[in-house]
Amino acid sequence: METIANNRCFEGEQLRLAHRAESLGCDMHFSLYLPPGARAGNVPLLYWLSGLTCTDENFVQKAGAQRYAAEHGVAIVAPDTSPRGDEVADDPEGAWDFGLGAGFYVNATEAPWSRHYRMYDYISEELPALLARHFPVDTERASIFGHSMGGHGALVIALRNPAHYQSVSAFAPIVAPTRCPWGEKALGHYLGPDREAWKNYDTCELIRAGALQLPMLVDQGEADNFLEEQLKTELLEATCADTGYEATIRRQPGYDHSYFFISSFIGSHIAFHARELEKSVSDD
């Protein structure tokens, strides 16, 4: 573990760290905000998963989340969006929607991607264990959220591991990657041609298959230029209505796909998770 940066922020610490990720077979970076309360003991943890082309740094520099994390006494970890390194395969055409920066939070099964692209295992298993060993965070009191591709990742990982997260939320998530160009390209390459295997990484398919109820919040900007072709929020709305799955899905007029959108509502998402994390203590 190597500390790359440590900046004081709202009386807490914004860290950037590097380590060897065994599940990915490469060196990785992640960013971690520790609120001031972490100096007194373990604090609850939020996982943030970023979108296409992002690294671990976009969220911590643009979202303005640290202020709210400090107020609510929660830590936020922001991992990178894919494996990295010269040995890691990339889109042979150099496209931005696949390969480096576009891991889609899956465990790839197809060569050459299966050698490194195991972001599902990294987020759900390796990173929590690493954080629990080295930092004052309580990984048993955790929630997860993300944006776009990361919103897809957060929803899928939470729905497949409901005992590990108290709540899940997303900004402009890809809710049905089996039915949009970004998802069809990524899942086709990472998982191969068997579309049944793709359903394990599709939020709508998981809910229809009987995923357990979790507190869920989704914000979608109505001026998002990816809404109609890639994000397809209406499919999640229909799926929840058909199955009785309870989710708060808010359409926000005038907001686009950018971090201006995220920064406008990040406070309400962190407050949402903080309430659910507090409930988990009361339930215990």
Rank of each mutant, 00 (worst) to 15 (best):
A5I: 02
R8S: 14
E11G: 14
E13G: 11
A21T: 04
S23A: 11
G25K: 08
H29A: 12
L32I: 06
P36E: 01
F59Y: 05
F59W: 05
V60A: 02
A63P: 00
H72M: 09
A78R: 07
S82T: 05
E87N: 13
V88Y: 06
E93K: 15
G94C: 07
D97S: 13
F98K: 01
G99C: 06
G99D: 00
G101W: 05
G103Q: 01
P112M: 09
P112S: 10
S114Y: 12
M119I: 05
I123M: 04
P128D: 10
L131S: 04
L131C: 00
F135V: 03
P136Q: 08
P136T: 07
V137S: 03
D138E: 13
D138H: 09
T139N: 10
F145T: 08
F145C: 10
G153T: 08
L155Y: 02
A158Q: 06
L159K: 00
I174F: 01
I174H: 00
V175D: 03
V175A: 07
R179T: 11
P181T: 12
K185S: 07
L187F: 10
G188Q: 05
G188D: 00
L191F: 10
G192C: 07
A197T: 15
I207P: 01
A209S: 10
G210L: 09
L214P: 06
L217Y: 07
Q220K: 02
D224C: 07
F226D: 09
Q230W: 09
L235S: 12
A238V: 11
A241M: 13
G254R: 05
D256I: 10
F260M: 14
F265I: 12
I266T: 03
A271Q: 10
E278F: 09
S282R: 15
